[in-house]
Simulated assay, not measured.
Amino acid sequence: MPSIQLRIFKMTMTTPLKEWSEETILSMIKDRVQESLELDYKECPAIFPLTEGKKKELSKDVSAFANSAGGIIIYGIKENGHIPTEIDTEFDPNALSKERLEQIINSIIHPRINELLIKQIELVTTSPGHVLYVVSIPQATTRAPHQATDKRYYKRFNFESVAMEDYEIRDILRRATTPDLHFHFYLGGQDTVPIQFSQDQPFSEEVDMIIAVENRAEEPASYAVMDVFIDSALKLSNSADLAMTNNVFLTLKDEKISFTHLSKNWSIPSKLPIFKETNFRITDIPIKLAIPKDHADSEVIYYMCVWQIRSPGMINNGSFAFVLKDSYLTVAKP
């Protein structure tokens, strides 16, 4: 994979929020991870001291993420041209605690955002005794849309929170009546597996790749069109009842990349409806995956993967990477 694509992946891949640390933030600054629809940087004065005017802006920003695709706001980072430049060290947890911030957010946005998470990160090396806050906001579904303190509804657009049009509000209201399907990818039922290479074989020993689908909405899915694109550098076999097409090219970040395309139509009565909080494997047996032998000695390699699921009333898509490092393959989740 070209180095530019590797860098894009390093910039877009994130660890689970509970594992974020000061090192995570410093890495984002070093890699110049740009703001996006799903990422925003705010300096400390954006919410501290927390005046009524700042509470209004806080409600606009957080509700806009929920009403859009969800995402993360990091309070305590300075940026220039949407690129992070340094940590802002003004937050004193004794003056504004994580619990207080969470309480305020829950009181100024209606209805309350379920599953909103806040991570308080200690600035152990940058500024001992000080912190910054990472706010993880899920995309609103059953309780959408969310209203700010000025009684308006906002969305993310061009790095900003802007008021929504009437038709956009109506579209979000329909989220509660449509499925919300997402993929999960596992290696032998885990996130990480060892890779074994043989001297006389062009590929590694095969490992199991499991693809599961989850519905996060109340409305069950009776029909879905599923597409998964796996980096062509990986050898796939035993694709079971998935249709497989090799050397499918997609253009991402202005770069044409080759993928192996796996597809499937899910429908009743041959398959059960996909109900909320269920997790179905999309194949009865695992897909087999192998790594090229000439990648065995590489320091780290990223294999790009993208997916899309369509069901009546919804289209979801996403990306992730398989990461080969020290003879272990990991599912790097966004």
Rank of each mutant, 00 (worst) to 15 (best):
L242D: 05
D171K: 11
D180E: 09
V134H: 05
N80K: 15
A176L: 10
I172P: 03
T330H: 11
Q147W: 03
L329I: 00
D208R: 06
E102R: 12
C305E: 10
L96Y: 01
K18R: 06
I274V: 12
S319Y: 04
N316Y: 02
E23L: 06
N80Y: 11
L117H: 01
Q103N: 14
K18E: 13
F322N: 10
I291R: 00
T245H: 08
I104W: 10
G189L: 07
I74H: 05
N238E: 13
L17W: 10
S27A: 10
V228N: 06
S311P: 02
R310G: 06
I118D: 04
N67Y: 13
A140K: 06
S198Y: 13
P138R: 05
A64D: 09
F159C: 12
V228A: 09
I309M: 07
P111K: 01
S3E: 15
N106F: 14
T15Q: 14
G188Q: 07
C44N: 13
T251A: 10
S107N: 15
S222M: 12
V323R: 05
N94R: 13
F9R: 05
V248P: 02
F229M: 15
T192Q: 15
A321N: 12
I309F: 04
E38W: 03
Y75C: 13
M28D: 04
K151H: 11
F157G: 11
L173Y: 12
T177E: 11
M226E: 11
M1L: 03
T330W: 00
T12D: 01
G70S: 06
V193G: 10
Y302W: 13
P49M: 06
N279V: 06
T126D: 08
R152A: 12
M209H: 03
K78G: 01
G129R: 13
